[in-house]
Design a protein around this nucleic acid. Structure first.
Length: 267
DNA sequence: ATGGTTGTGTGACAA
């Protein structure tokens, strides 16, 4: 049995419980990393996950905005919540677990969206996003001796040309500007990470994980972006068996604007 | 260029 790990920006874990339960039942990942839970810690729906066999849940939530959670069939040896940019946002959570013969650090991240104006001088949200990416450079695939690493999440950046519906038309749109895409690729390269989804489905294949709620017909227009990512250390990328984007989840009842992304590793 | 939708928690803001 492969080790399966998924990431999903759920846009309210409480409102989306029915489709999260559907995904867990149908696909049975060992670990599911959620972003935008929008749920204070004391209101997190633990019982629903426990009932499906996910007895190990680490949360980092806040009221109203942001929030990440890592839901697992496997126990955690360690949980860390990092306060990126020191402003108290719940945007990072990492756990260490044992899968097969590996110990794995799993980072779950929700990178700031960055607002509409891609100019850090006039838009503090964009400044925050660029600062956040800078701080991510400290996350290394080989950060701990004898521990493999996975980094997932809604990184709110589509780094490659075919991660957006039109490279040319999105070059000045936040999520695909050169300062963001180059910054994220530097995090990948300096950190020793491998983009598992692109390893499995290389450019120039178009790949999207997000479609705006604002489009009249998201499926027909298909103006998507690949904002959700799964990276790993090289020892794990050598064990990659499968990577999938669950496009169909965008059409489920009361969907998130993001869909799940899952990898399977032979461990 | 503009406006389009969704969620939290019932306002204004974030995405």
């Amino acid at each position: 049995m492969p080790f399966k790990l998924a990431t999903w920006n759920i846009n309210s874990v409480r409102l989306r419980l029915p489709i999260v339960e559907r995904f867990l039942t149908e696909e049975a990942p060992d670990v599911l990393c959620l972003q935008e839970t929008k749920c204070p810690n004391e209101l997190f729906p633990h019982a629903a996950f426990e009932a499906l066999g996910y007895g190990h849940v680490a949360i980092h939530g806040q009221k109203g905005y942001h929030g990440v959670a890592t839901i697992s069939k496997l126990p955690f040896e360690d949980v860390v919540r990092q306060d990126f940019c020191a402003i108290g946002d719940a945007r990072h959570l990492s756990v260490r677990l044992q899968a097969g013969d590996r110990r794995i650090r799993v980072h779950n991240l929700y990178v700031p969206a960055g607002g509409d104006e891609p100019d850090p001088a006039v838009n503090v949200k964009f400044r925050h996003k660029l600062d956040f990416i800078e701080e991510m450079r400290a996350l290394r695939a080989g950060g701990e001796p004898d521990v493999s690493a996975i980094l997932v999440g809604d990184l709110n950046i589509a780094p490659y040309e075919n991660d957006v519906w039109s490279h040319r038309q999105l070059l000045k749109i936040v999520s695909h500007t050169p300062v963001e895409t180059e910054g994220l690729i530097r995090v990948i390269e300096e950190g020793g990470w491998t983009d598992l989804v692109r390893q499995h489905m290389p450019e120039p294949q178009k790949l999207y994980t997000w479609w705006s709620y604002r489009a009249k017909d998201w499926d027909a227009a298909d103006k998507g972006r690949r904002l959700d990512h799964v990276w790993s250390s090289p020892d794990l990328s050598a064990r990659l068996r499968d990577a999938r984007v669950y496009r169909e989840a965008r059409g489920w009842d009361r969907p998130s604007d993001h869909v799940p992304v899952m990898v399977a590793l032979d461990l």
